[in-house]
Design a protein around this nucleic acid. Structure first.
Lengths: 215, 215
DNA sequence: ATTATCTATAGATCTATAGATAATGC
DNA sequence: ATTATCTATAGATCTATAGATAATGC
């Protein structure tokens, strides 16, 4: 995502101004998306973003294109978060477990962003970008390493991804729950579904976690 | 849902005409909802429903109210489907398994309706109506009966419900998959997550199923 | 001089209602 | 006679663009 256009100029001040406007639009769209309010007008979006109405068309062709960009943006941030936290783990099952446990905790860190994911629903699980391809790789590697005992990695992805979305939905709906505790329980349950013993799963879910990266 | 208003008149012909119009609007809204096209105009909806534009306001105050009614309608139909198929099973774990296995197969029967559920996403899991309360009851009963070994029924609901949505998403995205086979595998995986042995789960998921009720 | 932003607005679209028409009730 | 439907339309809102303004580049 860091690769720029053909000519690799260093970003000029003008570029950065343009990028600021674009980011403001995406952030505003994300807020509406988190509330499920896709029926807002472009005017309302530009007002919320604090940019002139006409600026919208410098960046996007339609409201739908903006919302799509907002979803992509959240997925990009999520992927960066994940890649950061799992660096340094070798066991693919542990990578999987750490991702899962940390994502639940992420809900308490940036609930608005997670709400965008929830709004996108199970569609995130069949997208070619974002969390799905990574999780699939982890699951496939875990099967190969003999850590998971399941028939189909793809089905495993849907099971784990669906359960993850369910966890995020629960944490969003119940602000008083202990996010760490609930996330670890859910992770253990998924790992058991993948063929681990109760003890192995519980052990893997009680190991220390990395610091959450700043966002 | 069969209880009518205060005065329990038998439905007159006028009542039925009104009901037909309402049903046509809800069906049209459902079709748009299945495609995720909530930005359509009321005019487009009434055109699709084959009713006059003004009729809309005889039944709904706003587009949002109609879409909400369309979701409720799908949930009502789903609940009727579920209640029908699980009647006659005693073991709560088997009730759970049969619901799960049949819901996956339902995707091939009425994909449009299932798409409405998918569009509603994980929100269906925290609703007070529809599948969530039933599934929660099944899970609680299964824990009490010693069939499931999990710490929290609520979390179990999110795991199972999320995995179910994931399954439906997969079946929707991959029309060539064998829905029965995949549904049974997913069900077994969830049951293992709930503490059943691989063998018990596989056994419970290979038992004969009831005929799908006509819809 | 160039580029992106902002303001203003024309035209399109959309909503909500009023009044006419058609169906049913009695 | 009553009730729900349909058609037509006024007013509101929304989109897309044109032109003016402000910021940056060279």
């Amino acid at each position: 995502m860091s690769a720029d256009h053909a000519a690799e100029h260093p970003p000029t001040r003008l570029d950065r101004r343009k990028e600021r406007t674009r980011a403001a639009l995406i952030a505003a769209a994300g807020e509406f998306l988190a509330e499920g309010r896709t029926a807002v007008s472009i005017q309302q979006i530009t007002d919320a973003a604090g940019v002139g109405f006409g600026s919208f068309y410098n960046h996007f062709d339609s409201k739908e294109a903006l919302f799509e960009a907002a979803v992509e943006s959240v997925l990009d941030i999520y992927v960066a978060f994940r890649d950061e936290i799992v660096s340094g783990y070798d066991d693919p099952a542990e990578v999987f477990a750490v991702s899962f446990r940390m994502t639940g905790r992420l809900q308490r860190q940036i609930p608005e962003m997670v709400r965008v994911l929830l709004n996108e629903g199970t569609r995130v699980l069949t997208r070619g970008t974002g969390l799905a391809p990574r999780a699939l790789t982890d699951i496939e590697a875990s099967i190969k390493a003999g850590r998971f005992d399941i028939e189909s990695a793809q089905l495993g992805l849907m099971a784990a991804g669906g359960a993850l979305l369910g966890l995020l939905q629960l944490l969003d709906a119940e602000p008083d729950l202990d996010a760490g505790e609930v996330s670890d329980l859910m992770t253990a349950r998924v790992l058991r579904g993948f063929g681990m013993t109760k003890e192995d799963a519980a052990d893997l879910c009680s190991r220390p976690l990395p610091e959450p990266p700043a966002l």
